[in-house]
Design a protein around this nucleic acid. Structure first.
Lengths: 152, 152
DNA sequence: ATCATTTACTTAACATGTGAATTAAATCAC
DNA sequence: GTGATTTAATTCACATGTTAAGTAAATGAT
């Protein structure tokens, strides 16, 4: 059906579909552990004793501040994260509790295998090139933000 | 900065960031017209008199059925879409009203320019390759769904 | 030191994402 | 043809996305 009017934003649609396909690989086992994928991104960013303020955490996880406020509240209620004092008293510094670290380790084992499976299916080199290409796309469209500044 | 613990789902993050960067290019002018980007995807899929049932529309727009129900209700309340009868009385067939077509045309003019700007900034060939790569990624991860079946 | 400005975060309001349950209609088995 | 099953769409409940407004604390100018 090449006659259908091509989506001019096929880039948008391709990004959406690719993201759906990738996240689908992780949703089952993360969900089985009682977490959403967003909550998992936060846990993951804090793994290994990393303590981050809300703004940095939001940027690394690609989650907007209002969403992160709710997510951190949920994770705090579940005993997976805790808040530390900061000398800048406007900031909240978040880190994992021992329970959070334990849950991370458990989920991480499976995620590693899933990611390896993606590499196998798609090709390790091709995957690396794809990520580079995606980051370059972002750099082209956000000339203000330096590439390295997110540290991710 | 190879010392930071690499995000093993850097693919996920890269997809998220790239998508954010791309959608940011369109959000302003679509929002100025009173539409969300999801509503715009629906309008766009129906442009040119195309009438689609909900299931097909959901698949083309990459929107889940419950969300599409609400979106179509909103667009219907705004007089931008209308529902047609189908011989299969379970289905709802949706199409644009003249107002919807007019709004599409107006927004589309700007979107075309924005998309051309992305092509200029990133490179037309590279963009084509990126979309191909994204679609291949999806195909690798969703071996059940044939590539062509969505027609998009 | 005082006040305007900026920054970090939260809250509010509404739209969408997501999975499970529900309803209505078509299809299948017999 | 009747009942079980499948399919299309909706509703429900909760989580997140998104923008705008609000709050508290740090910063800057004087």
């Amino acid at each position: 059906m090449a006659d259908a009017p091509r989506y001019d934003d096929s880039l948008t649609i391709a990004l959406l579909r690719a993201r759906d396909a990738v996240t689908a690989q992780f949703r089952d086992h993360v969900g089985a552990a009682g977490l959403t994928l967003q909550q998992w991104r936060v846990i993951r960013a804090l793994a290994g004793g990393t303590a981050l303020d809300t703004t940095t955490l939001a940027r690394r996880c690609v989650i907007l501040a209002p969403s992160l406020t709710r997510i951190v509240r949920h994770l705090g209620d579940s005993g997976l994260v805790e808040t530390l004092a900061s000398h800048d008293r406007r900031q909240r510094v978040i880190r994992l509790t021992p329970e959070g670290e334990a849950l991370f380790t458990e989920i991480w084992k499976v995620s590693e295998r899933k990611y390896a499976a993606i590499e196998d299916a798609f090709g390790q080199d091709e995957l690396r090139d794809l990520v580079i290409s995606l980051n370059r796309l972002r750099a082209c469209l956000e000339p203000d933000r330096a590439i390295g500044n997110a540290g991710v």
